[in-house]
Design a protein around this nucleic acid. Sequence first.
DNA 1: TTGGGATGTCGAT
DNA 2: TCGACCTCCCAAT
Length: 298
Amino acid sequence: MPEGHTVRRLADVFQRDFRGQALRVSSPQGRFAEGAALLDGTELRRAEAHGKQMFLGFEGGRWLRVHLGLYGKWAFGTGEPPEPRGALRVRLLGPGADGAGVWADLRGPTACEVVTTGEKEAARAKLGPDPLRRDGDAGAFADRVARSRTSIAAQLMDQAVVAGVGNVYRAEVLFRARTDPFAPGVEVGRDRALAMWDDLVVLLRDGVKRGAIVTTLPADRPAGHRRGRVRREDAHYVYRRHGLPCRVCGATVLTREVVGRNLFWCPVCQAGLPELPSEPLDLTAGADLDASARAQRT
DNA sequence: TTGGGATGTCGAT
DNA sequence: TCGACCTCCCAAT
């Protein structure tokens, strides 16, 4: 799922397996042929993620900017790459650490272009703070939210307000903060926005480790499924659970299309702005979760 | 086996 | 406001 945690994991793969190598760059599909020619044969210097955007920095001051959009995908492997099939926008080939070869195939991205360092920074400047980045500025996020009459649900989907949050994290962080999605930012206020930021840090970091979005606390999963691997159907509180009973209060979870995207919420738990717990909800507490995260990281 | 929807954004109209 | 992107997953047949 390409929300911020996915993009961070992809950047980590490039940092670990491709950095420092001169790469062969091609576009079997042809749509990226010009850009591929600019990068072909140059060394990958670093990989960086900001929100849902990834930047691969090559020698010569050129960056490959990639946005996966709804269904863009990277596939990776070692040794000989497979015969190109389908709409293969970009293929990267490197010698690999052991000389056996590494490859990366990109399909279906919304954005894939070669930019200068200045253009890359301009793209980053359009994005809000990223809860996964060390330079992520919680105060800037909270101030912006609290200054606007726009609903908190709309602001969480605005990449200029906070970068890396998508439709799943939006629905889930609103539930975990027991916050009415339709409340204007000015009513949500700075303190509540800061608490939601802290929770996004917890959720996104867990997503990076796990490679999946899990937001439910063990106590809110069905009895018998609180330990070990988290089943897909137990992973969320409200996202795509419309018509089902809320895990906390039993009320029916609702959905409604808001500016082209489906919003999910519990009309009872998220009625108004009830008082928040003082500590962030620590998802990673409990040996059961740690064991499951380790098992999936193979 | 077929078909619809999805984690997202952008450019044309 | 709508189509493009053109993949993956799951439900319906």
